[in-house]
Amino acid sequence: MKNLSKKHIKLFFVILLLLLVAIFILPVSIPLILAFITALILNPIVRWFIKKFKLNRKLAVTIVFLLFILIISTIGTYAVTKIIGQVINFAENVPTYIIQLKDQVLEWEKDLDHFSEDLPAELIEEVKTQIQSTTTSLSNNVREMLQIEDIAKVASKIPDYLVSFIVYLIALFLFMLEIPRLKAIAYSHLKESTADKVKFMNDRLSYVILGFFKAQFLVSIVIFIVTLIGLYIIVPEYALIMSLIIWIIDFIPIIGSIAILGPWSLYMLITGDLFIGGQLAILAIILLAIRRTVEPKVMGKHIGLSPLATLIAMYIGLKLLGILGFIVGPLLVIAFNSAKEAGIIKTNFKV
């Protein structure tokens, strides 16, 4: 009874410690967590360099790290430059867009007067009031979003983001160097039978994680190509930058490409450009159909995780951990499945 009580006390303190870590430490450790996850993802590439070119680990890590920096800096510089340019262009044209919207509302009011001659005057006046109120509210919201104070607040956070990014890069390099030692420390605290199970789980987890990102990348390439072709036909002047933005957003399954194409299509329809608005709506439906048909096959082939399980994991991860949850959620599900396959977790019970 005394031993049982001690076990309960130890379990209570372990759970309490984990809760404290999750509440206070985890939110401020996002750069370190991302660095550790990235190091695990890049580790197979490091091992490949070591095996293929007979390099020591430090040199292999340095090469992979520099290649990683080169890739993300090239993509990041191009994307940020284009996005900033488009945002500035949009901000400059906001007054024009608002005027176009108001002109369209006036046309709607004229059409309403023409088609509603036999309707009560009070009803017509109420409809006009609601339309004008909605238009004014929309205009005010857009102006508030683009106020100098709000832009200054975003700009003031750039140093914090820069510090976090530098910490992420330094931690990534150190984690890449220290992964073998960290594994050895972890295995030293395990029994031989448990260590074998954990090694099996680790190998399986590495394979599945690589498969997960490979599957997401393959699906995203299909989405990007179809989006680029579609936008070159519809709006060639914005095709490349909008395809890149949609490609990035489409990695988020709960939101997807519809988050960009939906409002864009709606705006074009409201402003009277039914042809382009309709084409954008059709493109959004095509992209949604492609993801819903291609993703299950690719995901199932590479990781054996159903799209439903992935969606649930990402949504719960988002609610608990924010944007980081989109990555951590599915990884936890994959880790659980790997632990179950290794025999560490048993679920063959009956109620």
Rank of each mutant, 00 (worst) to 15 (best):
I185C: 06
A186D: 00
A284G: 12
I72W: 09
F36C: 05
G304A: 06
N202F: 12
A335S: 14
Q216R: 13
I151L: 15
E192M: 12
L321C: 08
L59P: 01
F12Y: 06
W247H: 08
V64F: 07
I323P: 00
L162W: 09
L210Y: 07
L55Y: 01
L308R: 02
I248D: 01
A281G: 11
L218V: 11
V219I: 14
G85R: 09
L42Y: 09
G300V: 04
L182Q: 02
G211I: 06
I312K: 05
S206P: 05
A152Y: 11
L106I: 10
I327G: 03
Y168M: 07
D196M: 15
N348I: 11
Y161H: 12
P236W: 00
K340H: 12
T81V: 12
N141L: 15
L17H: 02
W247Q: 02
T96V: 15
G329L: 10
I209E: 01
A259G: 04
Q216E: 09
S73M: 13
A171H: 02
K157M: 15
F251I: 06
I98K: 07
I23W: 08
L324F: 03
S164R: 14
L324S: 11
I258P: 04
I148C: 03
I282D: 04
L70G: 06
L34A: 10
L55K: 05
T134Q: 13
L305F: 06
K301Q: 11
R204I: 07
N3R: 15
L218Q: 10
A184H: 09
L308D: 01
A39P: 00
L228P: 03
S133H: 08
I334C: 06
K58V: 15
I83Q: 10
I290D: 02
V226D: 01
H114E: 13
L138D: 04
F326V: 09
G76N: 07
I166D: 01
G304D: 00
A91S: 13
V219Q: 00
A121K: 14
N348C: 08
F213E: 05
V64G: 00
I223N: 04
I225E: 00
V333K: 03
M201S: 09
L55T: 04
V21F: 12
P330M: 11
N43C: 11
S116P: 00
Y267Q: 11
G277I: 05
L106P: 03
V198M: 08
E125M: 13
A239C: 06
G278N: 08
I179D: 03
I75Y: 10
L331K: 05
I255N: 00
S193C: 04
T271K: 06
E92N: 13
S5C: 08
I270F: 07
L106D: 07
F173K: 13
L119H: 06
L218K: 11
I241F: 03
L218W: 03
D111P: 02
I282C: 05
